[in-house]
Design a binder for these strands. Structure first.
Lengths: 342, 342
DNA sequence: GTTAGCACTCATCAAGGTGGAGTGCTAACG
DNA sequence: CGTTAGCACTCCACCTTGATGAGTGCTAAC
């Protein structure tokens, strides 16, 4: 357990470092006023804090920088949650004033704004459509054996996929099958669609067996999970203003990771609900070992729809980001209640 | 007019520079074998070429580098169009072997491959849907005054937009209007849709005036040109391997430009048909004043659908990129004839 | 327990020196 | 007369050196 004074000093060091990106010396802490001790005393404490693993020294006779453990302690115990500034609030308001219709647009736009307010990069994992309910299904033949399958969900989300239609299927029969689907299975979560189609179609199975079979195959294609399209990265260039990214090699490894959709999907979908802070190597991807990732899940009607994440250097303004994400989620709730769909 | 020998030397210098990214000296040209003159002679010619504006000297006693005018002359007269290598062909083939369905997917995927083969960045401007023909229109009500409008074009492209429905419109009447649209206006280019709706609906105007009016408003919303969504950038990180981008500031200005969708749209849609080469300041955007942009338009059934562009440093392997774009467009033609839609 | 003082370490920066790559010029060569 | 060898010159890139200063750890005094 840290003493009161150690906490004070650790907090002061991390705050300083977040601002300056440079190792913090004992003298500068002493001069700041809020820690009323001489540099020598502070040095002693710093040595202790280093031994305990909260601080690191890039080299002898440089100041100290926080270790990952240090950041962790800061986030869990010391950090004061910034109140959102007037300016930030104004930006948020003007954003919510502009009429936003689709949930996804709201979230993406919000992510962009946070990215600009913080100069970090934001990443949005869009809603996973398999949990949404079917609103409408449509099959538009294109000629040949191709058709466009369109799925509209209850949240207004539209998925479309070009599918191949088995040659032995009659199109007008298919239309009946599609009508059946729309009449009987509207409101069913996409995930359950196939199994429900089986059970619902039970009685008519004999007559329409072939069409149902064909429809199943098409659904299979249409609901095939979309790899891209759920992931939106914005403000990638913002992070280039951070001094830790003045080295192009680092930038490249980071951007390469961001481009690797499957990895990012895995990373994001594994995030628990609520606001999460992952510091440095707590993310087990080498490319972001010197970054921190703060994520928040967003939800509609109680069940979570997606994740929004802010990626920055470990020397991140945790307080600001967390309070902005908080402000967003509370405002978003308002927003969606007011004018969104549903 | 340049003499034979001057052309030879200029070509050799540019080829060398493209490979090495470093100023080229007279000795290294002389040693290459294909120019059988002594360094002194070459130096004299280089001095002349510099006076003529084809070469530049970063500073006294450095080698020469090509000027923009030099690159231009190279592209127009000297460059030998690389034959595509076996390896590249193999990559292309395996790409075309995997069944691609949608035109846009083909082009995007192709752009990515070229980007990887060349280590430059590729940009695709997708087809402008207003020139495509209507295949199917659908309106899915979401509850409240919202609905999803879906437009399918003859190329299999799907656009969807959430629209607001005027409160005074009856939904079942609207359905009739939509059916009318699908029956009578299928095959009409989206651009003409509104005017054709007027003329076609002429006779029934009296009875259905209100619905047609409402439909017009909805079409207005649904066809509102999409800002994003037409532009795809891939291989952004590839360009980071180029030595000219080892400075983060340059990277930032470039990436900022790439993120600025409207500017990029303007830049790309102003490109004439065929293969175009814009060198350095020939693009009038400061951010890419030290870059070259090679674009090719792609077409289906004669009318052009979009543009694919490769962005790299002025010291670009022009021959390779141009031949790859060529190979792509010829192969793409095959591809689309074979298995694509239409 | 706290603080002043001091020797020590080490990154950073500017100044000076060196090597090498490359040039331009001149004179000689075929 | 075009081509080439030779040479002095330029200038960048690199290294070394020394000075500066920020910061530490330790010790002794308060």
């Amino acid at each position: 357990m840290l003493t009161e004074r150690q906490q004070l000093i650790l907090g002061a060091i991390i705050n300083d470092y977040i601002r300056s990106a440079e190792p913090v010396g004992s003298r500068s802490i002493s001069k700041r006023g809020d820690v009323g001790f001489s540099p020598a005393t502070i040095r002693n404490e710093m040595a202790d804090l280093e031994e305990l693993g909260f601080l690191e020294q890039p080299h002898t006779s440089a100041g100290r920088i926080p270790s990952i453990q240090g950041y962790r302690y800061y986030v869990d115990h010391l950090m004061k949650h910034d109140s959102v500034t007037d300016n930030e609030l104004k930006t948020m308001r003007s954003f919510f004033a502009s009429r936003m219709i689709e949930m996804e647009q709201v979230v993406q736009h919000a992510a962009m704004i946070i990215s600009n307010l913080t100069n970090y990069t934001s990443i949005v994992l869009g809603p996973d459509s398999v949990n949404q309910a079917l609103k409408h299904f449509q099959l538009v033949p294109l000629g040949g054996d191709k058709a466009v399958a369109i799925v509209v969900t209850d949240t207004g989300h539209v998925e479309n996929r070009t599918v191949t239609i088995p040659a032995d299927l009659d199109m007008s029969d298919m239309e009946k099958a599609v009508r059946f689907l729309n009449e009987r299975l509207s409101g069913v979560p996409l995930l359950r669609l196939k199994s429900r189609l089986f059970s619902e179609a039970g009685e008519e199975m004999g007559r329409y067996a072939e069409q149902i079979e064909g429809l199943l195959g098409i659904l299979e294609q249409a609901l095939r999970p979309e790899q891209d399209g759920r992931l939106f990265v914005s403000g990638t260039t913002n992070i280039l203003t951070q001094p830790e990214f003045k080295d192009v090699d680092k930038v490249k490894t980071l951007f390469d990771l961001l481009d690797e959709t499957p990895t990012m999907l895995k990373l994001f979908s594994s995030m628990p609900e609520g606001i999460q802070v992952r510091i440095g190597t707590e993310n087990d991807h080498e490319a972001i070992a010197s970054c921190s990732l703060i994520t928040a899940t967003y939800a509609l009607d109680g069940h979570s729809l997606g994740t929004i994440g802010i990626l920055g250097p470990t020397r991140m303004d945790y307080g600001k980001v967390i309070s902005l994400l908080g402000a967003l989620s509370s405002n978003m709730h308002l927003m969606i209640g007011r004018g969104g769909q549903r």
